[in-house]
């Protein structure tokens, strides 16, 4: 028995030695991650305290789960959670399909110069700040000379201008649309680069077999980028509750608050913004834990059904 144990350890050490270069290539960076990403997590302890600046760690007052109870008993919290999930699910669906369709269509453009120009231009909006994009959206949808209302009026679809921005029900769609507009080109870069890795011989073979363009896309291009898509998808599912707040804040107005308030804004407004470090940390910790659960679930599901996974 002891022998078996010893030989197992021996084997492990032996393999470790064999893979010493692999360790050499990864361990230094794992240590960096340990320092810069893991050490600061001691900050989570704050969420069990009533943290005040200027006190040492041991002088802080311990409050147990009080901060979490306060979060879970706030009605507002559930509202922002609903909005966050709604917008992130919509963003996830649109944010994957559209850049993929764009990347695939771009790949089908035969003229290289045109292809390059379209690609370069398409990612420009990524560099334009949300303030500007939100401003453009407001002007497009305005009732005071907004292009969308003008067109709809001229075509006779509507009798008088519609206040798109005042309709809470439309808000989620507007955010999703604005996000697509701004980030489609940028998000497609990773797919475009994955497509270029596909062996061109496969296309040649398919052409010989008489496959049309759509069948080539279906049988070669899409399977070719499948693993990238799945890895990205798993990572994004983990981020469902963490979607930032900038675009929602800039696109919202008092008439749609019930639909526009999101978790990260709530954390800022009631946490750090009021110097309530413990409360802010508690929300951060909550969303981190939810993220990790989502991540492992998604990872497990994809591993089981598609053999692709992150871990």
């Amino acid at each position: 028995m002891a022998n078996v144990e010893a030989s197992k350890v021996d084997l492990f050490v032996k393999k470790m030695y064999q893979q010493r270069y692999l360790y050499l290539m990864s361990v230094p960076f794992i240590i960096l991650v340990l320092i810069f990403n893991y050490i600061p997590i001691w900050g989570w302890i704050m969420s069990f305290q009533n943290f005040k600046l200027g006190r040492t760690f041991f002088e802080q007052e311990w409050v147990g789960l009080a901060n979490f109870i306060q979060i879970l008993s706030d009605k507002q919290f559930y509202l922002v959670l609903r909005n966050t999930l709604a917008m992130s699910v919509m963003g996830l669906i649109a944010g994957f399909t559209i850049p993929i369709i764009f990347a695939v269509s771009l790949n089908e453009v035969s003229h290289t110069g045109y292809k390059k120009i379209v690609q370069t231009i398409s990612y420009l909006p990524h560099f334009v700040s949300w303030v500007v994009v939100a401003g453009i959206f407001y002007k497009l949808l305005s009732t005071d000379g907004g292009v969308v209302n003008d067109i709809l009026m001229k075509l006779g679809f509507i009798g008088e201008p519609i206040q798109f921005m005042a309709k809470g029900k439309l808000f989620w769609w507007i955010v999703t649309l604005a996000d697509i507009w701004k980030e489609m080109g940028w998000n497609s870069i990773i797919f475009i680069s994955a497509i270029t890795a596909i062996d061109p011989q496969l296309y040649d073979a398919a052409k010989v077999d008489g496959c049309g363009r759509f069948r080539q896309i279906w049988h070669i291009t899409l399977p070719g980028i499948r693993s990238v898509v799945i890895v990205l998808l798993i990572l994004s599912i983990g981020n469902l509750v963490r979607i930032g707040f900038e675009k929602q804040m800039l696109l919202s107005n008092p008439l749609v608050f019930d639909y526009s308030e999101v978790l990260d804004l709530y954390a800022l407004k009631y946490g750090l913004g009021l110097n309530r470090f413990s409360f802010g940390t508690a929300i951060g910790m909550f969303s981190s834990l939810v993220s990790v659960c989502l991540l492992f679930t998604a990872n497990g599901l994809f591993k089981h059904y598609s053999k692709e996974s992150v871990m």
């Binding site: 492990f12 393999k15 470790m16 893979q19 692999l22 360790y23 990864s26 794992i30 991650v33 990403n37 893991y38 050490i39 600061p40 997590i41 001691w42 900050g43 989570w44 704050m46 990572l235 983990g238 981020n239 963490r242 750090l272 470090f277 802010g280 940390t281 951060g284 981190s288 993220s291 990790v292 991540l295 992150v310 871990m311």
Partner: peptide, 23 residues
Amino acid sequence: FQARKFFSTFLVLTLYVSGGLIP
């Protein structure tokens, strides 16, 4: 690679947890 799974998990978690500004 022996440490593949452990290192992967170790790395992926950094995408979702952070200690915050002050720490």
